[in-house]
Design a protein around this nucleic acid. Structure first.
Lengths: 337, 337
DNA sequence: TTGAAAGCGATACCAC
DNA sequence: GTGGTATCGCTTTCAA
């Protein structure tokens, strides 16, 4: 069960067993074989706690995510996870469900685990936490929140650019009455999209009207927000959603009420999750490359031998506009609901 | 940073600090307060590795999942996770992507972590692994695979029952030419649904024809399998999918080819994931309660003070048939594609 | 009610 | 090349 047991069985010292197990190559071939044999026979698994306690480090990467239910976050997480495994790191995840308290306790847990690095894929953030992370002096990478620092890399998406393209496109199609469906308006990266929409519309389509409706970040939330929007007065000609996940909920609500997309109302998403292609109608959206984000997260945490991105930097990811079937020329006659 | 630092600052011994931190209530009030103060001032986080090394146990639950991308598994996982957190356990997940090698290495990792319990939410399984887990003598719970044992609980879904209901229903609607879309046919719980379909059809609809197509467990896989099915000859009047996730891919492919669901072809799913309600058309499916599964998993691992389910048992979860909009009376005229 | 000290199971430095 | 052993940070008797 323990190193010592293996050592005894192989007739060597624990130090030697440790060397073999860690691939330190000063061990003689025959000794190595003998040790390996003992390991196999005893079905020995190293105690990872002892290992990281003794070693000081921990081949474990921590990942904290706001909402694993949203396929966008899940995709990013999965990329980080697979990079970690590929490099022999374990991953421990925590889901904050957009709650600051959860975030605090997750961070403490990660720190307690002495993770080798910490990726925070979040929308919410607490200033005190940023400080605590800075003090921890382990590599940290933020996605969408925080700011770069000594040991902190920041990765963010150029939301403004993506939203501008949506605004331009809808304006071209004649939309001047727009509904914006979102969640957690107080969160910075979420709010960024809303501001960007309002700003760009003010430029390309002065006088355009935007009404905002918020609910939870879920299929159900999208549906709920759409319901409120529809109940609140004359329907807009287009609905811009803060992400694809909620947009799919919006589509459902419209369909249920016999409102045709895009003939009656155009709908746009954001993220380009796989589902946006499989829903009906396929969503016009903005592609945000989760794989690039995931790889960047990982490599800012664990720089490989090559000259990889160094902490303390900021990376900006550029999104890409994608037209599919959920947008069309604005109706000119009012929609009777 | 360490217990000792806190102890020194509070003017007590490490033993006392440890007692305070673990809520062992023999500590005098004033001492406790003094320690707490020191902890706060130093922003002390216990080193969890040292803690579980010393304590022998580990407030960590391991979860191994086949495919986190499939919302079904994700839902189960999330329930387990939230139960764990509620009881002060951490969770470490591993995704096997249906690969046996991944499974083996994940199990070893979990064992190395000395997890308090291990939940295996899998479709694949290796006999040697079952043995290793039995030997590990920690509480283990299998979902869908393995068999109960000394320290092993098994939870399974009564797939047969759910599939029978689908078969009966489709037969009532006049379907006698059926396509079955699945993934990883070799895996037991997956195969169970296929066999159940063939068996029940043989009973309720002798002479009915079933053609099977397999691809990956993903939206894309469902679409791909549907494409092959359609290309393989005259279209069936109904397509039964092994799960909702793939069914949504199937719907996409049919839509793309101008085939109407359910007028031209009926489609059924399995699981009743949230998405099955939000796709178009909403799927007729079989509800499998992920929350019940998740809670059962957790409570078989960590029995609470009450007389909870004891390891060594088997729990069977009953699914429930749900009719929505993707099924209708079978076409009587052949479909021209 | 508190302190001293013996582990827990590995790593890594220092001898041989 | 290999072995001895201090050490990591905490829990947990055993005494006081």
């Amino acid at each position: 069960m323990s190193l010592e047991a293996v050592a005894k069985r192989a007739g060597v010292s624990t130090a030697t067993v440790s060397r073999v197990l860690n691939g330190i190559s000063v061990v003689k071939g025959t000794t190595r074989t003998r040790v390996m044999k003992a390991v196999a026979e005893l079905k020995y698994h190293p105690n990872l706690h002892a290992r990281s306690l003794a070693g000081g480090r921990s081949r474990t990467v921590g990942v904290i995510v706001s909402n694993l239910d949203n396929p966008f976050f899940l995709d990013v997480y999965r990329t980080v996870e697979s990079d970690c495994h590929a490099q022999g790191f374990e991953v421990v995840v925590a889901n904050t469900a957009y709650s600051s308290e959860q975030l605090v306790s997750s961070v403490r847990l990660m720190l307690g685990r002495r993770v080798a690095g910490l990726a925070a894929i979040l929308s919410e953030i607490d200033e005190a936490i940023v400080q605590e992370l800075t003090d921890a002096k382990i590599p940290v990478v933020f996605f969408d929140v925080g700011r770069p620092g000594e040991n902190i890399t920041k990765i963010r998406v150029n939301y403004r650019k993506g939203v501008e393209r949506i605004a331009e496109y809808l304006t071209q199609l004649g939309h001047r009455d727009i509904g914006f469906i979102t969640h957690h308006m107080a969160l910075e990266p979420v709010n960024a999209r809303q501001l960007a929409l309002i700003d760009s519309l003010a430029v390309v389509s002065p006088g355009a009207r935007v009404r905002v409706f918020a609910s939870s970040d879920s299929l159900e939330g999208g549906r709920q927000a759409a319901r409120e929007l529809l109940l609140s007065g004359p329907a807009p000609t287009a609905i811009v959603c803060v992400n694809d996940f909620m947009a799919v909920g919006v589509l459902k609500e419209l369909r249920e009420r016999g409102i045709r997309v895009p003939e009656d109302i155009s709908v746009t998403g954001f993220d380009n999750i796989k589902l946006s292609e499989f829903c009906y109608p396929a969503l016009t959206t903005v592609h945000v490359p989760r794989d690039v984000i995931g790889h960047t997260l990982f490599s800012s945490l664990i720089p490989d031998a090559m000259g990889n991105p160094v902490p303390g930097r900021e990376h900006v990811i550029d999104p890409e506009f994608m037209v599919r079937d959920s947008t069309a020329v604005a109706r000119t006659t009012p929609l009777r609901i």
